[in-house]
Simulated scan of single mutants.
Amino acid sequence: MRIFLISIGIVSTVLGLIGVVLPLLPTTPFVLLAAICFARSSDRFHDWLISTKVYKAYVLEFQKNRGFTLRQKFKMLLSLYIVVGFSFWMIDHPYIRIGLVIMVILQTVVLFTLIRTIPDKG
């Protein structure tokens, strides 16, 4: 079971890191999954993961506050809209464009309905 959890943790970490530069892939859920897997299987991997900038930037605040500030939500959406907009402009296939629009709508709805908006501390 330990090897299975470490394997899932490594795959989740890689997907989370890819999600940092590819806004179509969510970062936070993958890094959370990796943290859970590593916490139950390897102290060394868990300690490494929670010390990374990716964990601190995407997971720690969310884990601590159970939500994002309105400013953080808009920053996430801005990067998403830019990348998807570029993809929409570059790809001339109607079904892919429809898929991109549906994905953006779903991500926006989830961010504003399922993820709590916390007050800005600054």
Rank of each mutant, 00 (worst) to 15 (best):
Met1Pro: 07
Ile3Lys: 09
Leu5Lys: 11
Leu5Arg: 11
Ser7Arg: 11
Ile8Asn: 01
Ile10Val: 14
Val11His: 04
Val11Asp: 11
Ser12Val: 06
Val14Lys: 06
Val14Arg: 11
Val14Met: 13
Gly16Glu: 10
Gly16Asp: 08
Leu17Ala: 00
Leu17Asn: 09
Ile18Arg: 05
Gly19His: 03
Val20Asn: 07
Val21Met: 09
Val21Lys: 05
Leu22Cys: 15
Pro23Gly: 02
Leu24Pro: 01
Leu24Thr: 10
Pro26Glu: 04
Thr27Gln: 01
Pro29Thr: 12
Pro29Met: 04
Val31Met: 11
Leu33Phe: 04
Ala34Ile: 02
Ile36Tyr: 01
Ile36Gly: 04
Phe38Lys: 02
Ala39Thr: 06
Ala39Ile: 09
Ala39Leu: 12
Arg40Cys: 09
Ser41Arg: 08
Ser41Glu: 12
Ser41Ala: 15
Ser41His: 11
Ser42Pro: 00
Asp43Val: 12
Asp43His: 13
Asp43Cys: 01
Arg44Glu: 13
Arg44His: 12
Phe45Trp: 12
His46Asp: 04
His46Val: 03
Asp47Lys: 14
Asp47Gln: 15
Trp48Gly: 08
Trp48Glu: 05
Trp48Ser: 13
Ser51Gly: 13
Val54Cys: 10
Val54Ser: 02
Val54Phe: 13
Ala57Leu: 05
Tyr58Thr: 09
Leu60Asp: 10
Leu60Lys: 11
Phe62Ile: 14
Gln63Thr: 15
Gln63Met: 13
Lys64Tyr: 12
Lys64Val: 14
Asn65Gly: 09
Arg66Cys: 03
Leu70Asn: 09
Gln72Phe: 10
Lys73Leu: 11
Phe74Cys: 13
Lys75Pro: 12
Lys75Ser: 15
Met76Arg: 01
Met76Phe: 15
Leu77Lys: 05
Ser79Thr: 12
Leu80Phe: 04
Leu80Cys: 08
Ile82Pro: 08
Val83Arg: 01
Val84Gly: 01
Gly85Trp: 00
Phe86His: 02
Ser87Lys: 01
Phe88Ile: 05
Phe88Gly: 00
Phe88Tyr: 08
Trp89Ile: 13
Trp89Cys: 12
Ile91His: 03
Asp92Val: 03
Asp92Tyr: 01
Asp92Ala: 03
His93Asp: 15
Pro94Ile: 00
Tyr95Met: 11
Tyr95Asp: 10
Tyr95His: 10
Tyr95Asn: 06
Ile96Ala: 02
Ile96Leu: 01
Ile96Arg: 06
Arg97Met: 00
Ile98Val: 13
Leu100Arg: 04
Leu100Cys: 02
Val101Glu: 07
Gln107Leu: 08
Thr108Lys: 05
Thr108Gly: 00
Val109Ser: 04
Val110Asn: 09
Val110Tyr: 04
Val110Thr: 10
Leu111Gln: 09
Phe112Leu: 01
Thr113His: 03
Thr113Phe: 06
Leu114Ala: 13
Leu114Ser: 09
Arg116Ala: 12
Arg116Ile: 03
Thr117Arg: 02
Thr117Asp: 02
Lys121Asn: 14
Gly122Trp: 07
Gly122Arg: 14
